[in-house]
Structures are given as structure tokens and as C-alpha cells.
């Protein structure tokens, strides 16, 4: 292979990896956007909800025998799907029992102090989930293996006999499921009565009350859906990514970066935001050492927040 061929192949490979991982990040971000975008609640535990999604899927797979029932190829995806309603319920309860005490229609107009409480409360929840999982599950790495993760499709060669792109089948499938999940959610949000009530509650809680919408219930629903979506993304990620109880920390900033990049409150924007983060992360490896992948994301995040807080896809400026 010649020098330009090597460079091109490296670039295409990173691009493909970025798109695939970006799709999953996009799904994570959409989950967070449901919570951060609609209710303006900073949820520090979002990464840990994702971690919980991974473990629940893992235990459904191994513990409930889904693996034996559906086989090693389909089993993991069934388990991930089954984990979703568990996390939906979990999110609902967390909001009902804890978050609703410091947020909701009551504190929507409250500046400063209301947010303060939310930030700290979710930090507490994050600590309990991370360390509680360590107590319960131990800190060794686990993963939701599927044989697809060690198989790949080859696209190409594009340049004579060289320059091909290899797409990991597990990742490709995960990305496909992510996109499908987002399309489904998008339909719910734009077409259904429930979805419209959520958007109305996000736009203007007071006017929503005048329409007869129970805003507190809308918030609870949005929180549950957001939890479930992020957990789903976690499960899909786990087919290719070994995890541990503290895995959420690595992703919580990625999620916020994506949501802010996409413009607060925009569901599709959050998806493109997550996609951009995936691309930045993977393409940065072409010029930076791999250990600095995450540093690149954080720097990118800081630049975005400081220079363009309304995001690239948002219409509303909301920095203060």
C-alpha cells in the first residue's frame, strides 16, 4: 500500500467508526434531551441510568436464560429490548420519589436555588447508583457478547486492491437499531397526543395547564422515556463495549456535549449532536494519541458551550 492509500484507508475507517458509534451516542443524547431539554433538569445520573440499562440487559441475558432461549446472536438484542421497560419504570419511580420534590411546575419559575437542588440531588443519585452497583455487581468488566461483534463486513476495495472499510457487524446492527429507535421516538413525539403534550409542557408549562395538560405527569413521563432511551443506547453499546459500574462517568459529558451541540430542547438536534461527538472522537484519533480522544471531546464541548451556546441546530439562545 502506498502512503496516500494508507492515509485514505485510515480516514475512511475512522469515518465509518465515527458514524457507527455516533449513532449510538445520538440515541443516548436523545434520551438526555428528553430530560434536560424538556424539563431543564440537569441529571448527573443519566450516565448511570445507562450503566443500569447495561447491567439489567446483562442479567436478563444471563440470569433469565434469554441466551439459551434465543441463541447467542439474537439473544442479546432481545435482552436489551426487555431491559427497556424495566428502566422506564425505574425512571418513573426516581422522578416520582426524588426528582419531583425539587422540580416540576412548582419550581419552573424558580431561578438559581431550584436548579441548585436538582444538580446536587442527581449527583447523590449518581453516587448511590455507581457505588451501589459496585457493591452488587463487583467492579470487573462484563459485556453483552454477540458473535456479530467479532465479524465484519468489508466494503471496497476502492483503490485497486487496497483501501477497504471494515464494518463490525455488531456495531453496524447497533447503529441501525439506534436509528430505528430514534425514528420511532420521533414519530411518537410529533404525531401522538402524548408527544404533543410533552412538547407543549416543555414550551410553556403555564399555558399547558390552561390546555388541560397535567404538567407534572408530563414531566414524569418525559423523565421515564428519557431514562429508558438512554438505557437502550447503553445496552446497544454494551454489545461492543465491556462495562463496569463507573462506565456512566465516561459518557455523561459526551451526552451533555451532544445535547448542547444539538440545541437544547431539540430531539433530532440531540441526535445530530451525538453523531458529531462520535465523529470528533473517532476522527481525532487520526491526529491525536488515543488516550486524548476524550480530552478532544471535552475541549470540543467547552468550545461549543462558550462560543455557541445555542448549539448548531437550535433556534433559541439560552445561555443565562
Amino acid at each position: 500500500m502506498t502512503e496516500p492509500q494508507i492515509l485514505l484507508e485510515g480516514f475512511l475507517q475512522a469515518l465509518a467508526a465515527g458514524l457507527l458509534v455516533g449513532a449510538i451516542y445520538g440515541l443516548m443524547c436523545v434520551g438526555l434531551a428528553m430530560i434536560f431539554g424538556i424539563m431543564r433538569v440537569i441529571n448527573f445520573a443519566q450516565g448511570d441510568f445507562m450503566m443500569l440499562g447495561m447491567y439489567v440487559a446483562f442479567f436478563i441475558l444471563v440470569g433469565l436464560g434469554v441466551n439459551n432461549l434465543f441463541g447467542a446472536t439474537i439473544g442479546p438484542y432481545v435482552a436489551i429490548l426487555l431491559a427497556a421497560p424495566v428502566l422506564l419504570l425505574f425512571g418513573y419511580l426516581i422522578h416520582r420519589l426524588l426528582i419531583s420534590r425539587v422540580t416540576g411546575a412548582r419550581t419552573a419559575g424558580l431561578e438559581g436555588e431550584g436548579h441548585y437542588a436538582q444538580l446536587i440531588l442527581t449527583l447523590g443519585i449518581a453516587l448511590v447508583l455507581q457505588n451501589g452497583s459496585q457493591v452488587l455487581f463487583g467492579s470487573q468488566l462484563v459485556s453483552i457478547r454477540t458473535p456479530l461483534s467479532s465479524a465484519a463486513w468489508e466494503i471496497g476495495p476502492f483503490w485497486g486492491d487496497f483501501v477497504s472499510v471494515f464494518i463490525n457487524k455488531g456495531r453496524g446492527l447497533a447503529a441501525l437499531f439506534s436509528v430505528l429507535a430514534i425514528l420511532g421516538l420521533w414519530l411518537v413525539i410529533t404525531r401522538s397526543r402524548l408527544g404533543r403534550s410533552l412538547r407543549a409542557a416543555a414550551d410553556n408549562p403555564e399555558a399547558s395547564t390552561y390546555m388541560g395538560i397535567d404538567v407534572d405527569r408530563a414531566y414524569r413521563t418525559a423523565f421515564a422515556i428519557g431514562t429508558c432511551i438512554t438505557a437502550l443506547a447503553g445496552g446497544l453499546l454494551a454489545t461492543n463495549y465491556p462495562f463496569h459500574p463507573f462506565v456512566g462517568l465516561e459518557f455523561v459529558i459526551i451526552m451533555y456535549a451532544g445535547v448542547v451541540l444539538g440545541g437544547m430542547g431539540s430531539i433530532l438536534g440531540a441526535f445530530w449532536g451525538g453523531m458529531t461527538i462520535g465523529l470528533v472522537q473517532q476522527l481525532s484519533t487520526l491526529v491525536l494519541p488515543t488516550q486524548l480522544q476524550n480530552t478532544a471531546i471535552f475541549v470540543c464541548f467547552l468550545l461549543i458551550v462558550i462560543l455557541r451556546p445555542q448549539g448548531f441546530f437550535g433556534r433559541v439562545v439560552e445561555r443565562t
Binding site: 412538547r199 414550551d203 410553556n204 403555564e206 399555558a207 430542547g265 433556534r315
Partner: peptide
């Protein structure tokens, strides 16, 4: 008062 439409809808 002040109309309060849902701006993004």
C-alpha cells in the same frame, strides 16, 4: 395575558 403560544409548535 401575553398570548403564551407554544413557540416551537
Amino acid at each position: 395575558e401575553g398570548r403564551q403560544v407554544f413557540p416551537s409548535l
